[in-house]
Every structure is written in structure tokens, then in C-alpha cells.
Simulated assay, not measured.
Amino acid sequence: MQGSSISPSVLTTTASNATRGLLLGLAGVVMFALSLPMTRLAGGSVEAPQLNPAFVAFGRAVVAGLLSVAYLAVTGARRPRGGEWRLLAFTAGGVVFGWPLLSGLAVRHVDAVHAAVISGVLPLATAVIAALALRQRPSPAFWACAVAGLALVVGFAAWRGAGGLEMADGLLLGAVVCASAGYVSGARLTGGMTAEQVICWVLVISLPVTVPVAVMTRPTAPVAASAWGGFAYVSLFSMWIGFFAWYRGLALGGTLRVSQVQVLQPFLSMLFAVPLLGERLDAMTLVFAAAVLAVVWFGKRQPVDTRSAP
């Protein structure tokens, strides 16, 4: 019987790439999981405010944008062309402006543990928007998971709000929609440029807006050193380095396989919030978080017909 035509060295390389991809993907998820606690640390709460949420949102984009200018220059990346500019602008609206600003405003009013549960439906929301934007046909089980995920986070928000929804919950859901839409439009750009170049160009074209807003909202009174630490983290890791690790992990290990680790993000966010912010975890919050994780994981495994609907 003829042996396999794939050499052992190729198999070893493939397995090594898969492992590296998973590790890089996990590293990206860990960096993103710290985003909500660090945003809360930077902006403070209503009772003890620190940096203006607008400064945190736009200032971090300025820092990452300047780093992106250097990266694009050093790597000799080509300039976007044609319709890519429109997709870059749409992506910026979601991941540079929408998510950071809305989530930053929200975590001034609710703790990071609360925000982590609500934002836990982000992977499923991204899949829903992708299906709608690309006119795909997910299975009924997929749509059932999407509805169940929304019902869970709304139920959790109502429970935490003593029977009603708070403004912060609406801001968080809006942030999820913005981020999901930005991820989908950004993914459409990766056919013509690398994922790292996409996020860099998104940040660079945002500088004409982010720089003046950051200057206008800069702090005029002293703030805690911990707030600046939180700001530095979301600028360097949440807005820049995390995307490099995440996208490289997807490329090496495969999108379907590596993206599954993203379901761990809300749990990691909650765990980080305990030592960083002194927040507490209760049993019911963990139950809701586990239910959201299960629905997202199951939903991402449902078949989607990638042919465009008529």
C-alpha cells in the first residue's frame, strides 16, 4: 500500500502552526478580556470619576494610531484604494468610535463583571451581522441561539437592575452592535491586505477626528496613577497589540478552530475584575455567564449556508 504523500516534516510544521495559532489566539483573547476592567480603571465610576470616557476612547485611538503610522511606514504597506476607503471608514465607526466610547460610558455606571456578561454575546452578534450583510442562510438552530443569547443578556440586565433595564445596558448592547459591524466590514478588507494592515489603516484614517477630540477632552485635574495605567493598557494592548496576536492566531491556526477560544473572554474579564477593581462575583452572575457562553459556543457550531440568499 502506498504511503502518505505528506512528509513528517510537513505534518510537524502544520501541527506546530496550529498550536502556535491557538496560543496566539488565546493571548489575544486574554488581552481583550482585560479591556473592560482596564477601561473601568481608567474612567472610574460615577461616584469616583477619573479620566473622561471620551478621552479614554479617543486618546487610546490616538496612541495606537501613531504606532500604526510607524508600522505602516516600516513595513512599506500599500495605500488603500477604491472601495477599501469606504470599508475602512465603516470599520473605524464600529471599532474605533462606537465600541470604545459606548462601553467606556457604560462601565462608569455598571461594574466590569456586569459589562462582561452583556458583551459575552459579541461573537454571536458578529455571526448574525455577517449572515445578514453577506445574505447568508444560517440554520434555524443558529437563529434560535441568537435569540436565546439576546434573551439571556436582557434577562441578566433586568435581574441586576431589579426588574428594569438601565441606560448602561443599552450602551453596552449598542457597543456590541458597533463592534460586530466593525469586525465584519474589517474582515471583508483582509482579502486585499493583511489583517494587521487593516487595523492600522483604520486607526490612521481616524486620526483627524481622534486627535482633536482627545485634546479637547484631556484631563485638566490630577487623576490617579492607576487610571493612567488603565489608559496605557487599552491604548497599547486592547487597541493595537491584541489585534496583532488575534489576527495572526487566526491565520496560523484557522479561523474556525481558533475563534472558539473567544467564548472564554467574558469569564476572563470577570476574573480579572475581582483583583483589579475589587468587584465581587455571585453565583447567579456565574450562572448567567455560563449560559451565555454555552449558547454562543453552540451557536457558532451551527451550519451556515454561505451561498447568498436570493
Results as ranks from 00 to 15, higher is better:
142 F>P: 05
187 A>E: 11
120 G>C: 03
260 Q>I: 10
60 R>M: 09
309 A>I: 02
87 L>N: 07
235 S>I: 10
181 A>H: 02
81 R>A: 13
168 A>N: 11
124 L>P: 00
67 L>N: 01
222 P>D: 10
53 P>T: 09
159 W>M: 03
56 V>S: 06
76 G>A: 13
52 N>K: 02
219 P>V: 05
79 R>C: 04
203 L>P: 06
7 S>Y: 09
157 A>C: 06
261 V>H: 06
233 Y>F: 15
173 L>H: 07
173 L>I: 05
171 L>Q: 09
198 V>W: 03
35 S>M: 12
234 V>Q: 08
171 L>M: 14
65 G>D: 02
292 V>C: 13
283 A>E: 01
237 F>G: 03
220 T>P: 01
221 A>I: 00
113 V>H: 09
45 S>T: 15
10 V>Y: 07
109 H>D: 07
47 E>L: 13
158 A>D: 00
215 V>G: 05
193 M>E: 10
115 A>M: 04
296 V>K: 06
169 D>H: 05
1 M>E: 11
154 V>S: 02
290 A>S: 12
301 R>E: 04
293 L>P: 03
212 P>V: 09
151 A>V: 12
64 A>I: 06
87 L>M: 08
242 G>K: 04
287 V>Y: 03
281 L>Q: 08
40 R>C: 10
224 A>P: 00
131 A>T: 03
276 L>R: 14
203 L>W: 05
76 G>F: 11
290 A>Y: 04
240 W>R: 00
217 T>F: 12
231 F>S: 06
188 R>P: 03
69 V>F: 07
259 S>N: 15
91 T>K: 01
